[in-house]
Nucleic acid binder design. Structure first.
Lengths: 324, 324
DNA sequence: ATGAAAGCGCTAACAT
DNA sequence: ATGTTAGCGCTTTCAT
């Protein structure tokens, strides 16, 4: 009947180092404005290490009034590849600042505020838009920082759309189509991107794109393709690579091939993009800069600064392959 | 200069309802063995609602000795579609039991135990294997329940492999290949699946599969394909759909087509599988039953029961398309 | 430079 | 049936 292996507390560390708990707290959090002799500091650190001490998160945040948990709320499912990468980068950067980021799949019928309260998050960043009332609820729950990326404030997706259209236009196309994903998708993201396409068209005096929604099924896509060709569209920009793949499949069903019968450009650069025939031209966006930037914003906001929604630019670039 | 909008505490609720904090705690957690009159209960609930009261997670877990946070640790990146769905289902089921599940991307050079400590998780389930020392560290950190799915204990992937091979064998193939993903992947998952393939081969007296690793690049895949054909392999089972897509791309590079020159079967049924040419035959596995089951195990373990690693079966089935 | 002491908001014996 | 009380482990002001 062995003892329950109680976890080491700061009192244990204090005892082992022969100092008070206050001192332990000071050195472990290296509180500024204290002048702790190197020797003492060393003893404390050593004691903590040897006891494998980890502060009890709940006690810590109860006392301090804020946790160091950041919640990243994702509302797209399955989680797109670039968002995974974004999340990873965010987590890493935040970790460097002593913060812990975890993901939440915002697809269950459960108020975001509930989840935040349960994990005691002190910041939440949402991919996509956040309804104002949700933001308010979050604030009321005690979440200090609420940010959303890819929402209205993010110019990133507009750039993606612009790039897609510019690439197509450069290759001589004048009548463009835009393929909306036939599934639930953050409205703002899609419409920003479309806006970018429209701007690029307008810039060269071309007609606005013919917007069609295409579900990820060859048959559905074929219908859309036929429609575009009726309207003498010669190139289409798709909301994302999966949608672009669907368009390609639709074309195949009609015996058409890209880019000659219809040029197609996607967005995301998912793995499959380079594995199909013809390999899909797409706009890759590297969210990792954005992620690092965002993480900094969150961290400094939490540290007392202001939470400016941060123009998150993703530095999109076209990856030219063969479909356009 | 308005007040900081302090969050309502259980004391506020008690005051509003005209009872003690103990009573509030009892009715809010509906503690068994107490006989609270309906009237009192109603008053408390009403007060809580009107104050938009949410228990402070850290205070609660500090006092109770355990949080209701469950961490799902994922080590594959990008997050595969079926794992997203699995996670969603888990979260939903756990929520019904009052638990909150969040995701952790286990790819940063940060000990899992650290993260658990930071979010004060009382259970962690890992997709894939967990090194024994990690498990030990977790335990030491105070994590009550440690489970891993897709690890040694999960027969699920073996079934996937068996199904792949059986499908191929049924269609007359006797010399099989197996395509390992050319990237970091949970060892156990891959080897379980491979084991399934081997078993199915053995069952009909066929030679064991020729295992080759293929990176997600057409050129690399082409090399593998050539090798298989040298060895008179006529069909290959791939670790997942992306790998299968790569094989298909490699074949195309060699002017070969599936299933005639080489039959290919994937696993996962990702969206792109149905959008390529030829449409990819694959094994779909619905992890949602598994998820619900797992959630139950976690919940009851947390409630005092034992944490049996749970035979998580995913009910895989082959989705026959045209590549095999 | 270090320590004593007072909470943070909650739960759970124990009393009434 | 409800209230009193004592912590949970930590941070932080105020003394020393």
């Amino acid at each position: 009947m062995r003892s329950p292996a109680r976890r080491a507390t700061s009192a244990d560390v204090a005892r082992a180092a022969g100092v008070s708990r206050t001192t332990v707290s000071f050195v472990l959090n290296n509180k500024p404005g204290q002048s702790i002799p190197e020797e003492t500091r060393r003893r404390v650190l050593e004691a903590a290490r040897s006891l494998d001490y980890r502060p009890h998160a709940s006690a810590r945040s109860l006392a301090a009034g804020r946790s160091d948990v950041v919640l990243l709320s994702i509302s797209q499912l399955p989680i797109p590849a670039n968002i995974s990468r974004f999340a990873e980068e965010c987590a890493t950067t935040l970790a460097e600042r002593g913060l812990t980021m975890v993901l939440h799949l915002d697809v269950q019928g459960r108020p975001l505020a509930d989840v935040c309260a349960s994990v005691d998050a002190s910041a939440v960043v949402a991919m996509g838009d956040l309804p104002p009332e949700t933001t308010a609820a979050l604030r009321r729950t005690g979440v200090a920082v609420v940010l959303s990326v890819g929402g209205d404030s993010a110019a990133a997706h507009r750039d993606v759309g612009r790039l897609q259209a510019e690439h197509l236009i450069e290759r001589g196309h004048r009548r463009l189509g835009y393929a909306l994903a036939g599934q639930r998708v953050p409205r703002a993201m899609a419409s920003e991107q479309l806006l970018g396409v429209e701007e690029a068209c307008a810039a060269v005096g071309a007609e606005p794109p013919t917007v069609l929604s295409v579900a990820p099924r060859p048959a559905d896509a074929a219908r859309a393709v036929a429609l575009w060709r009726d309207r003498s569209v010669t190139a289409v920009a798709a909301y994302n690579d999966e949608t672009a793949l669907a368009v390609l499949a639709g074309m195949r069903e009609l015996g058409l091939t890209a880019p000659d019968d219809l040029a197609v450009i996607g967005a995301d650069d998912i793995r499959a993009a380079s594995l199909v025939t013809p390999p899909l031209t797409t706009v890759a966006f590297d969210l990792s800069n954005a992620a690092r930037h965002l993480a900094e914003v969150v961290a400094s906001a939490l540290a007392g600064g202001e939470a400016r929604p941060a123009e998150v630019s993703s530095g999109p670039r076209v990856v030219r392959r063969e479909s356009a």
